[in-house]
Write a protein that binds this DNA or RNA. Structure first.
Length: 474
DNA sequence: CTATGGCACGGATT
DNA sequence: AATCCGTGCCATAG
């Protein structure tokens, strides 16, 4: 890097600024792929060689030799996860799935959003092969808010299937993440979200009525009118409105509208593909964890040996640039290796520590700070920060969560809090909850309980009681 | 008077 | 250095 600064910038290095390990570290696999592809296209010194495959299982591997899974003795120490780098082309071809299914209207699929693929991937397992056409049709007809503008009857007619089938498919889609996608209207999106929410936590009674009948008043914030409409006090109406705006999102595709909470799991930053996939070795519940770090490329990057050989023979006017290219290329490769190395070590350690969380859910999350990990791995804290930020990991249960979540200091307390409230006989005040938590070993101030509560989208005690009985949305 | 939410401060984390 | 997080204090609503 020091050398680079004084090197003449014969070529302005385009958007790709210097490939330092630092800048690479913070990139998502997806982003990194773009970066590398740009380099590949512009730098003749770089070469992509075919991916190696494990001789015994055919699993793609980045390095030579048997894959990490096969080389593993059948019964290993379950606490030590197997970590390896895996090129997964399928993850980087967002429109691939959809194209493969032969879209009814091809033109929209390509660039617009990754959203259609993201949703399709979630529901694909539950879908009869024939219904995938329908799903693809619906998903590609979404507007930028994630709502469906086309009439269901039209879709049914187009595919010559009964309306009920389209409805069934749509229902699956709506309940996928982001919850409510594909709804024909904001109202319906809200209702679906409310319904999903109601499965895991109490929601205000009449919230569904408010949405169904009082959408107009809700959006205009005319709480008094809304209250009159529903026959409740203005205060209660305000609370309902607040609950709705805090927890629901009329435009499922707009992420910035705030987090949508579902159950104990806040579905935030939902749009990405995983950078890391964690699964269990076979299906054995207590088996070793297998961690795939997604490689940004389907092959292995190296210096083109022909290019290196012909370097001496470079024409005088090109010589400087060629050297430059070579240097650039080897730097990139070096940095890439460094990045991989760090990420592998990082995730190896993290999965070991959070094993129980990965297998058994939120309640088992071990509080973990980036700093302590940095200390353990003997790298700078900021390295960990960069490595963690923006990345996502797919857990054995299929959920894709931000890697950040494994470093959440309060998640386990929050889930405990949720449980307490779920089991409470009578609405407990924050102070009482704080006491209960303390009894369980979590020392938190009453004020903090309030914070966690609102973080989880749970209403205060005096508002909980009233809706205890009338929970479910009809 | 009690339960909560807002603001803001300090210490930890990134 | 910037940001996040837990908390205490205070105003307000019930």
């Amino acid at each position: 890097m020091l050398l680079q600064t004084q090197a003449p910038l014969t070529r302005p290095l385009t958007t790709a600024h210097l490939a330092t390990t630092m800048s690479l570290m913070s990139l998502t696999a997806l982003e990194l792929r773009e970066h590398i592809e740009a380099q590949l296209a512009s730098n003749p010194a770089l070469e992509l060689v075919e991916v190696q495959r494990c001789p015994s299982c055919g699993r793609p591997i980045a390095e030579r030799g048997p894959c990490a899974v096969c080389s593993r003795p059948p019964v290993g120490m379950p606490d030590e996860p197997i970590v390896f780098i895996s090129p997964r082309e399928d993850f980087y071809n967002p429109s691939g799935h959809l194209h493969a299914e032969e879209l009814p209207s091809d033109e929209t699929a390509a660039e617009t959003e990754e959203l259609p693929t993201y949703v399709l991937r979630q529901i694909a397992p539950d879908l009869a092969p024939d219904d995938r056409r329908l799903a693809a049709h619906i998903l590609t007809s979404l507007d930028e808010d994630g709502l469906l503008t086309e009439a269901l009857t039209e879709i049914a007619r187009f595919h010559h299937v009964p309306l009920s089938r389209v409805e069934a498919v749509l229902r699956l889609i709506q309940r996928a993440d982001p919850v409510g996608v594909g709804s024909p209207s904001p109202e319906e999106a809200l209702l679906v979200q409310l319904e999903v929410l109601a499965e895991t936590r109490p929601v205000p009674a009449l919230a569904d009525q408010a949405i169904r009948q009082g959408m107009e008043q809700l959006s205009k914030r005319h709480f008094a009118e809304l209250a009159k409409l529903l026959g409740i006090s203005t205060a209660r109406a305000k609370e309902i409105a607040r609950f709705i705006s805090d927890n629901l999102n009329p435009y499922p595709a707009r992420t910035h509208w705030g987090n949508i909470h579902q159950g104990t799991e806040a579905a935030q930053d939902v749009y990405h593909f995983p950078d890391i996939i964690i699964s269990q070795l076979n299906d054995a519940p207590d088996s070793t964890l297998v961690v795939e770090v997604i490689s940004p490329l389907a092959g292995r990057l190296r210096i083109n040996s022909l290019f290196r050989q012909s370097l001496q023979m470079a024409p005088a006017d090109k010589s400087e640039q060629w050297h430059n290219d070579l240097e650039q290329a080897s730097l990139l490769i070096k940095c890439l290796q460094q990045r991989n190395h760090t990420i592998v070590r990082l995730i190896q350690r993290v999965t070991a520590i959070q094993r129980s969380f990965i297998l058994h859910g939120d309640a088992h999350l071990e509080p973990l700070t980036r700093a302590s990990l940095a200390d353990e791995l003997e790298v700078h804290e900021s390295t960990i920060s960069r490595a963690v930020s923006g990345k996502a990991v797919q857990l054995p249960n299929g959920r894709i969560v931000p890697l950040k979540k494994l470093f959440d200091r309060s998640l386990h307390i929050r889930t405990e809090l949720c449980q307490i409230i779920a089991q409470e006989k009578r609405p407990l005040t924050d102070t009482e909850i704080a006491a209960l938590l303390k009894k369980k070993g979590y020392k938190v101030a009453r004020r903090t309980v309030a914070k966690y509560r609102s973080m989880e989208g749970i209403l205060p005690a005096h508002l909980r009681q009233s809706l205890q009985n009338a929970v479910q949305v009809g």
